[in-house]
């Protein structure tokens, strides 16, 4: 049953997560089984307390399930220790966060290089730079490598974060409310990048509570009280390029200042 079919990127088998807070057991995730094929773009939805964040932490190998099994790229990662999980995150996962989590006072290039420094390969400074520049170009930030996060707009910062997530060619890109700190126009731009990447075959799992953002994905999974209550393909899918065109009134692009929390 643990078949590592090449088409399956992520498989959860009856995953449960229980936290003990004092006397009470909190069942954050109560038996979730989920299969995500390679190349899918999935939005994970639910209100707060639905267990979607806990499930995301498990999918991101930041946390281990209390019971059940998690296969990532055919490898059972549900019982790995802290350091092994760190290596899995480094090799197979890319993270994009709501608040970008870029290192301040650090150039975009060095931010993007970060996962390489913790990787198994020893790269020279020139190799690091060359790889980082290539990924930055892929997210439309050529020539901005020496900018610090404070010199970039929110959309640009999120693109740097996406570049960082992509640098190790991950199996799955995990995005946790990637548009939560962005205005609607920049949100659409970031969705455009996600759709482009997805087109190129990258598997994306995105947590969001905004239904219109979820409509950029192919498939929406909705959670409530620790269980999946709905799992369906998106019927009227948004195309970021088109949406952007609609927004493209004569008004020039405004580079908005960002507030980083």
């Amino acid at each position: 049953m643990a078949d590592s079919s090449a088409a399956v990127a992520v498989r959860l088998e009856d995953v449960q997560k229980t936290y003990r807070t004092g006397e009470v057991d909190v069942h954050a995730v109560r038996g979730v089984s989920l299969e995500i094929a390679r190349g899918e773009f999935v939005a994970l939805m639910g209100s707060s307390g639905s267990g979607k964040s806990t499930l995301m932490n498990i999918l991101g190998c930041l946390d281990r399930p209390t019971s059940g099994r998690y296969f990532l790229d055919g490898e059972d990662v549900s019982s790995l220790d802290r350091d092994q999980l760190a290596d899995v995150r480094n090799r197979k996962l890319g993270f994009v966060f709501q608040n970008f989590n870029l290192l301040a006072r650090t150039s975009a290039l060095e931010n993007v290089e970060l996962p390489l420094l913790y990787g198994p390969e020893r790269l020279s400074n020139a190799q690091l730079r060359e790889k980082a520049e290539r990924v930055l170009a892929a997210v439309g930030l050529e020539g901005r490598g020496d900018h610090h996060p404070s010199q970039l707009s929110g959309g640009q910062q999120q693109r740097v974060a996406v570049a960082r997530a992509l640098i190790n060619d991950p199996e799955v890109l995990l995005a946790d409310e990637p548009t939560g700190n962005l205005d609607s126009r920049t949100s659409v731009e970031v969705m455009g990048i996600f759709q482009d990447l997805n087109q190129k075959g990258i598997t994306i799992i995105m947590v969001t509570h905004e239904p219109d953002i979820a409509s950029y994905a192919q498939r929406n999974v909705v959670m409530r009280d620790g269980r999946i209550v709905s799992d369906r393909a998106v019927t009227r899918r948004f195309d970021a390029a088109q949406e952007l065109e609609k927004l493209n009134e004569p008004a020039p692009e405004v580079v908005e200042p960002t507030v980083q929390t």
């Binding site: 290596d87 870029l102 290192l103 996962p115 913790y118």
Partner: peptide
């Protein structure tokens, strides 16, 4: 947060 980010991208303790 920086430490968290480092750990997320693969830093060991």
């Amino acid at each position: 947060r920086e430490i968290g980010t480092r750990m997320a991208v693969g830093a060991h303790g």
